[in-house]
Design a protein around this nucleic acid. Sequence first.
DNA 1: GTAACCGAACTTTTT
DNA 2: GTTCGGTTAC
Length: 750
Amino acid sequence: MAVETLPELLEGLNEPQRAAVTFGDGALLILAGPGSGKTRVITHRVAYLVRERRVAPWRLLAVTFTNKAAKEMRARSAALLGEDAGSLAMGTFHALCARWLRIDGHTIGLDRNFTIYDADDQERLMKRTLDDLRMDPKKHSPRAILSQISHAKNEMLSREGYAARIQTYDQEVVARVWARYEELMRSSSAVDFDDLLLKTVQMFAQSEEAIEKYAGRYQYVLVDEFQDTNPVQYQIAHALAAGFVGAGSEPERRIDAAGRRLGYRNIAVVGDPDQSIYSWRAADIRNIANFEADFPGREVVLLEQNYRSTAPILMAAESVIDRNPYRTPRRLWTARPGGDMITGYEAYNDEEEGEFVANEVRRLANAGRKLSAIAVLYRTNAMSRPIEDALVRHRIPYRLIGGVRFYQRREVKDLIAYLRLIHNRLDEASLLRVLNVPGRGVGKTTVARLREWAASMQLGTWDACEAVAGGRLDTGITGRSAAGVREFVIAINALRAKRELPLTMLLDDLLMATGYLRYLREGEPDAAEDRVESIDQLRAVMIQYSDIAGDVSDLAQFLNDVALVADVDEVEGGANAVTLITLHNAKGLEYPVVFMVGLEEGVLPHIRSFDDPKQMEEERRLAYVGITRAEDLLYLTRSYRRFMMGGTMANPPSRFLLDIPKEVVRPWGSTTPGLRAGSYAEAVAIAPPQEDLPEIEAEYGPGQLVRHVKFGVGIVVSARANGGDVEYQVTFEAAGVKRLLQSYARLAPA
DNA sequence: GTAACCGAACTTTTT
DNA sequence: GTTCGGTTAC
């Protein structure tokens, strides 16, 4: 017995944390508020099970929400355990399922070299499907159909099940399209994200061998971010812990081939209903109730002490989330004394909001804060733009998470499509993507002919290409188009012969064989440099895949991982840069300084949630998640005007701001008159309604020189009435042309 | 039959 | 301010 390690393991943990760490066998529900040391509890529990209970590491399974979380968990467990953490099974549902399916998917007829399609590939294939069925993609939006299918899959509804309960015409369309879509996926040897989960459940349900193997292997199952699991994911967790598929049915005991009971029923789930923000991805909080039903007698541990944030930040968070109905009241508390007030700032427009953030970042950096300690959080990716612009102006380095995602960039997707095709020639979406990239004279008509011929011969499109390359004429493809197809086939086959080469060499050969670089340079000379840079980045990623251990090729492993990376996975602590990130992506992260921007009605809460109370509650949780990312300093900003969807919007301050007690908010000097003192609620109360504004006369005329606090000296180009105000167009020496409202922009004669 | 150009529609959040 | 699809020009 390693007696001396137990006190070490429990040192510095509070009572509920200890209870969770040392919980023995059975089912455990850990309700963990933000900053309550959740990861610490999980890693210490892993260490406890291995050290004290002598559980072999490979018999522990931990499911996380992102690859990054898995990586961190593994690293921290390893630090507690020493070297024997390598065999711990940790990963996202999707990554784990992909691994299991590659090994045992053959039991349900799945090829081990299947390709994983992302949303982009799916959309491409869906358009094809509609095309095949002679349906108008404008009448039936591919995306909407896919989202219907996805939702059904995540609800564990099979295509047959869906078809059986059709009620509307639209559903009938979906059912019809779904059938053909599935055929195409199958013949492409492809699966989508939802299939990874669903097929795993199918495998566990249909293959005795598979369920015995995995339920027999994992003695302890742990699921993190449980509030964001959807029904299929829950089914998987349940199957592994209980030894059979069928959560919700009578608990039973399964016997394996050796006569042992299957399913250890040791399962711990960690979650926080207040941080459930993925219902649109079919996540279902009811899983918490299901858990209680499927694992009767489960214990509950509540983690309520917050170690992350100051009292004012927690106060703000609580006052926002507390307004959600039907929530189990819970109090977070902190032992941290003092703490700065929250800073509230009202900007005139989104550009100025960015200026404010950049100025504050600069000030904080000068005061000794590391840039890596600072994050800017926003509701939608598009909102990063004005922040980025301001940071660039101030020469402040930043890291953008998400946005135009690396693996979504055209050049990266093109090259990956080539690699996938080399790996799996059935991959229809990839084939159609690159068949004419760079242009080879293979246009729409030729593609249609290829597909028609393939269909008539019961073959794939790739076979049709090979037929053309082989000189077959009954395809109706001749001349330049036929030459293009032949060129393509020769290139792919030549590269295929090199698929065991180190990936970077394969990439270089690929670029050479296809003339891709020249295509970039000639196609869009302006963007070429950028795109070549992302190819270099891709090469850098590939280097990590040289000679990986394991029984699959580097290429297979690379393609698998690349399909499953999330944006947050790229977040690193080390870089000396400000982090720009969406609220969704920020879940699970923490920063000493947090700026939450765009706290406006229509933005946060998002306009799409206005007519649905359920969604509005989720927006509130999103605000709660954002606020609770902050450790020391929190800035809540909103902008009077915002440029979005091609126009300028004037949004009132977010209702969430109004919920925060003024005692914890310090309003910052605002450019909006009358909004300088008091809380947000006060500020709004004293701001005169728009229509009562007195008519303002233009103080300056075109041609006059004026001075602006921020932009310096400029010349008035035009002045015109605008909603009781005067809007000027002014050209500044340094900042260029700006539109300014007289009542807000404090202009002075120059 | 293909490439280039131009207008329209749209942007919530993502494994 | 983007990307997609349709139309026109070659």
